[in-house]
């Protein structure tokens, strides 16, 4: 029983197998035309020669990938050594996005759970309460967040007045500020999928576990978490992946002293550099990285289901 619930009866079900082509067709069509085609164009661009100040010349070239992985010195005439610049930028972005995802999970999971356990009639109100702030433009929210965190801002004033600290904590222009900003940008994307999962959770399972003298933490870990895993994974994907490419929070809250993936790529298309093939190559590397992570996830889930079935 528990195993069946944990795997969620998901992909095993083939109720609508005969209609699946028709069900998927709209998604395939829209995404195929308006997302996949542009992405494939970018893939092609990453193997073309760059045109000075933006644009491409239709000649095959690996220069973009060479630039990513090969360091050839300030003047580009030294032999190839490993280029750490872009790997570091990627690593930094992954780290920041990961920290923001963790922060969202730690605060978002209890919130989602709390909402899902309210009486049914007030649950929508709670859901809206979480999403109302997102009617305000991201830029304005981020600027306001920066205002809150300033050395002379309300947060520091409050902490000093309570006597918790003596001098202001310096938060703006630190990594923590970036994580906080990313967390603030994407929180509902963690809360809502988890809420949708927990709302469906059968609390009789927890009850049964408690009857068998399982502690609360054991119940949480062994029964509840596996059952709502799809929601947690969906939430993590929806926070982590957009965080990777985001640049508003890093720029405004982090001081933009170091490139993140998003600003690095933006600079290639909109900045002085105007190096479209390199921007395309960096996007493709990011894309394949994320794709691999997601595929591993999907595979593992499929395996777990097979094992449970």
């Amino acid at each position: 029983m528990a195993a069946g619930a944990a795997s969620g009866g998901s992909a095993k079900s083939d109720t609508y197998a005969d209609a699946r082509t028709w069900l998927l067709l709209p998604a395939w069509a829209v995404l195929g035309i308006f997302i996949l085609t542009p992405v494939l164009m970018m893939l092609v661009y990453s193997f073309l020669t760059k045109e000075f100040r933006g644009g491409v010349i239709w000649e095959l070239s690996f220069a973009a990938y060479d630039q990513f992985f090969c360091s050839r010195g300030l003047f580009g005439d030294e032999p190839c050594t490993v280029e750490w610049t872009y790997i570091n930028i990627f690593w930094r972005s992954i780290w920041q996005a990961g920290a923001a995802t963790l922060l969202s999970l730690v605060i978002g999971f209890p919130t989602a759970y709390f909402i899902a356990t309210r009486p049914e009639s007030v649950r929508p109100v709670w859901v809206f309460l979480i999403t109302i702030p997102y009617w305000v433009n991201l830029l304005i929210r981020t600027v306001s967040m920066k205002f809150m965190l300033r050395d002379q801002g309300p947060l520091n004033d409050f902490l000093i007045s309570t006597g918790l600290i003596d001098s202001p904590i310096h938060i703006v222009n630190t990594n923590f500020a970036v994580q906080l900003g990313l967390f603030y940008s994407y929180l509902p994307f963690m809360v809502l999928p988890i809420y949708a999962s927990v709302e469906r959770y059968n609390f009789n399972l927890s009850e049964a576990a408690a009857d068998l003298y399982a502690s609360k933490m054991t119940t949480l870990r062994r029964i509840l978490l596996p059952a709502v895993k799809p929601g947690v994974i969906a939430g993590c994907i929806l926070v982590f992946v957009p965080s990777l490419g985001s640049f508003l929070a890093p720029d405004l809250l982090g001081g933009a002293k170091n490139f993140m993936i998003g600003s690095l790529i933006e600079e290639q298309f909109k900045g002085n550099a105007g190096n479209w093939p390199f921007g395309a190559a960096a996007s493709m590397i990011l894309l394949s990285m994320v794709l691999v992570i997601l595929m591993i996830f999907a595979r593992q889930q499929a395996k777990a289901e097979k094992g449970a079935g």
Partner: peptide, 14 residues
């Protein structure tokens, strides 16, 4: 993969 594609490509590239 196709469904999650819009998530994975940085917005500026799209």
């Amino acid at each position: 993969g196709l469904i999650s594609l819009p998530l994975m490509v940085p917005e500026i590239v799209t």
